[in-house]
Every structure is written in C-alpha cells, then in structure tokens.
Deep mutational scan, measured.
Amino acid sequence: MTLTLTVPPGAKVRVRITNENGETTEIEVEPGETVTITLPAGSTVRVEVEVVDPDGRKRTETFTLKP
C-alpha cells in the first residue's frame, strides 16, 4: 500500500506514521515536494498529517489505514 502526498507551495507538512507495535516514523515534506510512502503490507497504520500554511495556521488530519 502506498500513500502519496503533494505539498502545495508555501505549506509545510509533517507526517507521523504509527504501526500496530506503536513504532512511529516521522517525516517532514518541504513546500512543492511530492513524496510517496510505502506502508507495510497487511498492517494497520495510523497516519497523522500536520499542515502549516504560509500564514502560520496549523491543521491536523488523522486517519487509519487497514489492509
């Protein structure tokens, strides 16, 4: 399973991925970048995406991906 994120110009994104064992991976994606994350097959993962807009506003979306 893959997750692809494209960050709009001016925004910053931090992604936290937590697996079933509670292990967390965190990455930051710079403005204008596209990143593809390969998620472990057969695992349920929690993905938290934090977006910081150019004006400093933050918003966070959290979702769970199941196999």
Rank of each mutant, 00 (worst) to 15 (best):
S43V: 11
V13S: 05
P31V: 14
E23C: 12
G22R: 06
P8A: 12
L65R: 00
V13R: 00
D53E: 04
G10L: 10
M1K: 02
R16W: 13
E61C: 15
S43K: 14
E28I: 03
P31M: 10
R16C: 09
N21I: 12
R57M: 04
T64L: 12
T6S: 07
V13L: 02
L39E: 09
R14C: 12
P9N: 09
K66N: 13
E61F: 15
V35R: 03
P8T: 14
I17K: 08
N19E: 08
N21R: 09
V15N: 00
N19Q: 09
T60H: 01
E30Q: 05
R14T: 14
P9D: 08
P67F: 15
L3N: 04
T2I: 13
E48A: 03
E50Y: 01
E20W: 07
E33I: 10
D55L: 01
V35P: 09
I27Q: 10
V45P: 02
S43T: 12
G42D: 12
T34Y: 14
V29N: 15
V52F: 02
R57H: 04
T4W: 10
T6W: 15
I37K: 10
I37P: 02
T44M: 08
E23R: 06
E26G: 07
N19V: 15
E26R: 08
E61Q: 06
A41T: 09
A11L: 00
L39T: 07
G32T: 13
R46V: 12
E30K: 09
D55W: 05
R16G: 10
L39K: 04
R16Y: 05
M1C: 15
A41H: 07
G56V: 00
V7M: 09
V49G: 00
V45G: 09
E28K: 07
D53Q: 03
T38V: 09
I27P: 15
V45C: 07
P8V: 15
G56F: 00
R46T: 10
D55S: 03
E28P: 12
P31H: 06
I27N: 13
R46Q: 06
F63A: 02
P31L: 15
P54C: 12
I17Q: 08
D53I: 00
P31I: 15
R14L: 12
T6E: 10
E28A: 08
T6N: 12
L3Y: 05
K12V: 09
E20V: 04
E61R: 04
T62C: 15
E30V: 13
E50D: 04
L5N: 04
N21E: 07
P54G: 03
E26N: 06
E26H: 06
G22Y: 08
E20H: 05
G22S: 08
F63Y: 06
T36L: 13
P9T: 10
L3V: 09
V49Y: 01
E30T: 13
R16N: 04
G22K: 08
R14V: 13
P40W: 15
E23S: 06
V29R: 10
V51I: 12
V49W: 02
T64R: 00
L39W: 10
G56A: 00
K58G: 01
V29M: 13
D53C: 15
S43I: 13
E23I: 08
P67S: 07
V45M: 03
G22A: 07
T34L: 14
P9E: 10
V45R: 05
T25A: 08
V52L: 02
G10C: 06
I17A: 15
E33P: 12
G42C: 15
R59D: 01
T4C: 15
S43G: 14
V45K: 03
A11C: 03
F63V: 12
V49A: 01
K58V: 11
T18W: 14
E23F: 07
P40I: 14
N19M: 09
N19P: 15
E26I: 03
V47N: 00
N21P: 12
N19F: 10
F63E: 01
V45I: 08
T62S: 06
E61T: 14
E26L: 04
V45W: 13
E48L: 02
A11Y: 03
R59Y: 15
T64P: 03
T44H: 06
P67D: 10
L39M: 11
V7S: 01
T4H: 13
T38S: 06
V45Y: 14
F63I: 14
T2L: 05
G56M: 00
V7E: 13
P67W: 15
R57P: 00
L39G: 14
E50K: 01
P8M: 12
E30N: 04
F63W: 05
G10D: 06
E23N: 09
R57C: 09
T60K: 03
E28D: 11
K58Y: 02
R59M: 03
I37W: 13
R14I: 08
T62Y: 12
M1L: 08
T36G: 08
D55R: 00
